[in-house]
Design a binder for these strands. Structure first.
Length: 641
RNA sequence: GCCGACGUAGCUCAGCUGGUAGAGCGGUUGAUUUGUAAUCAACUGGUCACCCGUUCAAUUCGGGUCGUCGGCUCCA
C-alpha cells in the first residue's frame, strides 16, 4: 500500500506493509527527524504515530516545531507528570491536565499539600519515567467500561467528566502502569520528552467554580530543545524586569501603601507628571473629536443607584453606604448616572445629538483581596470615561469614531500587544432582540470597516448591551481589559432619557459608554511594561539630566537647564559631589532619555555633550540645536528605547 | 473570598537546629575636581508586619490578624 508521507516541504512515497504503523515508516523515511515527529494528520484529523493506515493517501507528519506538535508534546508531559504524581502519592486523584499557551498543568486532589520543594521530587520522578521509555498506548472502550475503571481507581473527577460526554466510546491512554482518559494524540513514548520544567503550584477550583473544591494545580512547561527551554526561562526573567510594580518602585513612580489600604494608589511626583502628560494629550484629542468635558461628584444618594440598577446588579462591587443626615450615600463605582443627570437637566432636541461628554472620573469598586494586582487591578481608579447620547441613525458613525479614537491612542502610545473582542448577548440581559441585533451589528460593522482584527466573545456582553473590548497584554502575557465601547439601552430606559425628534415627539437616545485608555492606573501600568520604564521623551518624568563634570561648570549647567525649562522641557542638574560616571550611571538607571554632559569645553562653546539613553555619547552640540531636537522629540512623541 | 508561598534598615538581601540582628546600596558629613554606566572615608539607620501563646529566653516554634506574590474566580 503506497502512502505519501509529508513532512514540511519534504515528502516521501512509502510502501506500507500489512499492519505497519506510521511510526515505523517515519523511522525509515525520516530517520534524522524522527524524535521531533510526534503525530500525524490523516484526512484532517490528528492521530497517533502508532496508527496503522487502512487506505492509501497522504499523511502529513506533525513535528514539535508546529503549534499542534508542541501542544501534543506538552499534553504528553502533563500525563507524565500525572504518572509521576500517582507513583509518589498513590492517593492523588486527577482532575484535568491540558496543554496551555506557555506549557501545561494538571489539577490534582490529594491529602498532602504540595510545597515548592516537591516540584523537584516530581521532576526527578518524571525524568525516571522518560528514561523508561514507556509507550503511550491508546485504547477505545465503551464509556461504561471507562466509568468502571475510574470508579475502581477512585478517580471521581474522571467519572464526573465521563458522565457528561455524550459519545458511546471514549479513548484511554496508558503509559506504564498509568491510564488516563484522553482524546489524544500523544507522543509515541515517554522517551520523547526531554526538556521540561515544573514551574509553580497554585490553587484552582474544580471546573473553575468557587463553589467547588479547591484543587492543587501544578504548572510546568516543555520544549523540543534545551535551548528553547532555556530561552523560555530567560524570557520569564526578562519579563519580570519589566514588571510595572518593580519599575514603579525603582523609578519612584507610584506606591501602594499598607497603612492606607490595599488597592489604593499613590502617584509619586514622577508618576504624576507622566499621568499629567497623558491627560493633557487625552483632553486635546477629545476637543479635536467634538467632545465636551464634565465634572461630577464622588458620592451620591443611594436612591440614584437604585434607579440606575447598580444597587441591584452591582452591589457586591460597591462600598457600604455613608450616612449623611437622614440619607444614605454611596461612593460611586461608575460615572454614568451622573452624566445622565446632566443630560436630563434640560430638554434635548434631536439637533443636539450626538452629545459626547467626557470625564476623568474617579470611581471606587470593591475587589476581592486576592485579585488585586499592582496598578492593573485596584480598588480606586480614574476612568477616562465618556458617555455618548446618540440617535439610532448615528450609532454606526459614533461607534466608528470611538474605535478610530481608540486606535489613535494605542498607536500614539506604541502599544503592540493587544487583542480585540466583540462580546455578544449574555444569558441574562435586558432589551429587545431587535435592539441587540442592531447594536451588535453596529459594533461588528465598525470593526470590519476599520479593518481591526477581532475575536467574538460569545455571551460575554454586559446585561445592558453588547461591547467591544481591547485587552492590553502585560509583560508576562496576561490580558487586561483596557479600552472598551459598550452600547446601552438600559440606562436611558431606567432614567427615562429622551430627546424631542423632528416629529415633535419624545424619542429614546442610545447611550454609548466608552473609555479609550481604560483607567489611568491600569493604562499607566501596562504603559510602564510596554516601555520597560523607558518612556518616550514627551512622557519621561525627567527629559534631560544635565551633568556638570566638575563643580566649576555648575553655574553653566544651571543656565543650560534654565534655558531648557523656559521652553517647557523637564530638565534637572545633577549637583551631587559625584564623578560624572556615577551621575551618568544613575541617569541611565533612571532611564532619562537625554543626558547633557557639560565640561569646560562645552561651557566655553555654548554647547552640551549629548548622551542618548541606551545609545551613549552622541557628541557635542550647540545648546539651541539640542533644545530644538528635544522639542521635536516631544512634539512628534517619538518612541525610542 | 479560596489554595499555597512569603513579610528582617528607605531599597536589595544574609541571619544553621530559639540566647533581643548583619552586608551592600541609599542618606548625612568630610576629603577628592574628575570627559561618558559606581572615588574614598566616617557616621546614620531596625518594636525583625501586627497581636496572642509556648519557653528562663522568640526574628527563629505554634495560633490568629494584616499585607505582598503566584494561581482560581471576576472586572477598567
Amino acid at each position: 500500500m503506497d502512502i505519501k508521507l509529508v513532512l514540511g516541504d519534504h515528502s516521501s512515497l512509502y510502501s506500507f506493509a500489512r499492519g505497519e504503523s506510521v511510526l515505523s515508516a517515519v523511522e525509515k523515511s525520516f530517520p534524522e527527524q524522527k524524535r521531533s515527529i510526534v503525530a500525524a494528520r490523516v484526512e484532517g484529523s490528528l492521530v497517533d504515530l502508532t496508527t496503522v493506515p487502512s487506505s492509501e493517501g497522504t499523511i502529513e507528519l506533525v513535528t514539535t516545531g508546529s503549534r499542534e506538535g508542541l501542544e501534543i508534546l506538552r499534553h504528553s508531559a502533563s500525563h507524565i507528570m500525572a504518572e509521576a504524581i500517582k507513583e509518589l502519592y498513590p492517593d492523588a486523584k486527577l482532575a484535568i491536565g491540558p496543554a496551555i499557551d506557555s506549557g501545561f498543568y494538571y489539577d490534582i486532589d490529594m491529602a498532602r499539600t504540595l510545597a515548592p520543594d516537591d516540584l523537584g521530587v516530581i521532576e526527578e520522578k518524571m525524568h525516571e519515567i522518560t528514561q523508561r521509555g514507556e509507550h503511550f498506548v491508546r485504547r477505545d472502550v465503551p464509556i461504561a467500561e471507562a466509568v468502571q475503571l475510574f470508579k475502581e481507581q477512585g478517580d471521581q473527577y474522571k467519572v464526573e467528566i465521563l458522565s457528561e460526554i455524550p459519545a458511546t466510546t471514549v479513548s484511554l491512554y496508558t503509559q506504564g502502569a498509568f491510564t488516563d482518559l484522553c482524546r489524544g494524540p500523544h507522543i509515541p513514548s515517554t522517551g520523547y520528552l526531554k526538556h521540561f520544567k515544573l514551574l509553580s503550584i497554585a490553587g484552582a477550583y474544580w471546573r473553575g467554580d468557587e463553589k467547588n473544591k479547591m484543587l492543587q494545580r501544578i504548572y510546568g512547561t516543555a520544549f523540543p530543545s534545551k535551548e528553547e527551554l532555556a530561552g523560555f526561562i530567560t524570557a520569564r526573567e526578562e519579563a519580570a524586569k519589566r514588571d510595572h510594580r518593580k519599575l514603579g518602585q525603582q523609578l519612584d513612580l507610584f506606591s501602594i501603601q499598607e497603612q492606607a489600604g490595599p488597592g489604593l494608589v499613590f502617584w509619586h511626583p514622577k508618576g504624576a507628571i507622566v499621568r499629567k502628560e497623558i491627560e493633557d494629550f487625552w483632553r486635546a484629542e477629545h476637543i479635536k473629536r467634538g467632545y465636551e468635558f464634565v465634572y461630577t461628584p464622588h458620592i451620591a444618594n443611594l436612591e440614584l443607584w437604585k434607579t440606575s440598577g447598580h444597587w441591584g446588579f452591582y452591589q457586591q462591587n460597591m462600598y457600604s453606604p455613608l450616612q449623611v443626615d437622614e440619607e444614605q450615600y454611596m461612593l460611586k463605582p461608575m460615572n454614568c448616572p451622573f452624566h445622565i443627570l446632566i443630560y436630563k437637566s434640560q430638554v434635548r432636541s434631536y439637533r443636539d445629538l450626538p452629545l459626547r461628554w467626557a470625564e476623568l472620573g474617579t470611581v471606587y469598586r470593591y475587589e476581592k483581596s486576592g485579585v488585586l494586582h499592582g496598578l492593573l487591578r485596584v480598588r480606586g481608579f480614574t476612568q477616562d470615561d465618556a458617555h455618548l447620547f446618540v440617535r439610532p441613525d448615528q450609532l454606526n458613525d459614533e461607534v466608528k469614531g470611538v474605535l478610530d479614537f481608540t486606535r489613535h491612542m494605542i498607536e500614539t502610545f506604541g502599544f503592540t500587544k493587544y487583542n480585540i473582542y466583540l462580546s455578544t448577548r449574555p444569558e441574562h440581559s435586558v432589551g429587545s432582540d431587535e435592539n441587540w441585533e442592531m447594536a451588535t451589528e453596529a459594533l461588528r460593522v465598525a470593526l470590519t470597516e476599520m479593518q481591526l482584527p477581532y475575536k467574538i466573545d460569545p455571551g460575554e456582553g454586559v446585561f445592558y448591551g453588547p461591547k467591544i473590548d481591547v485587552k492590553l497584554v502585560d509583560a508576562i502575557g496576561r490580558e487586561w481589559q483596557g479600552p472598551t465601547v459598550q452600547v446601552d439601552f438600559n440606562l436611558p430606559e431606567r432614567f427615562d432619557v429622551t430627546y424631542i425628534g423632528e416629529d415633535g415627539k419624545e424619542h429614546r437616545p442610545i447611550m454609548l459608554h466608552r473609555v479609550v485608555l481604560g483607567s489611568m492606573e491600569r493604562f499607566f501600568g501596562t504603559l510602564i511594561e510596554q516601555y520597560a520604564g523607558a518612556f518616550p521623551v514627551w512622557l519621561a518624568p525627567v527629559q534631560v539630566e544635565v551633568v556638570p563634570i566638575t563643580d566649576v561648570q555648575e553655574e553653566y549647567a544651571a543656565r543650560v537647564a534654565d534655558r531648557l525649562s523656559a521652553r517647557g522641557i523637564r530638565a534637572k542638574v545633577d549637583t551631587r559631589r559625584e564623578k560624572m560616571q556615577a551621575k551618568i550611571r544613575d541617569a541611565e538607571l533612571q532611564k532619562v532619555p537625554y543626558i547633557a554632559v557639560v565640561g569646560a569645553r562645552e561651557a566655553s562653546a555654548d554647547a552640551v555633550a549629548v548622551r542618548k539613553r541606551h545609545e551613549g555619547d552622541q557628541g557635542a552640540m550647540q545648546v539651541d540645536e539640542f533644545l530644538e531636537k528635544v522639542l521635536e522629540d516631544i512634539r512628534t512623541k517619538v518612541i525610542f528605547s
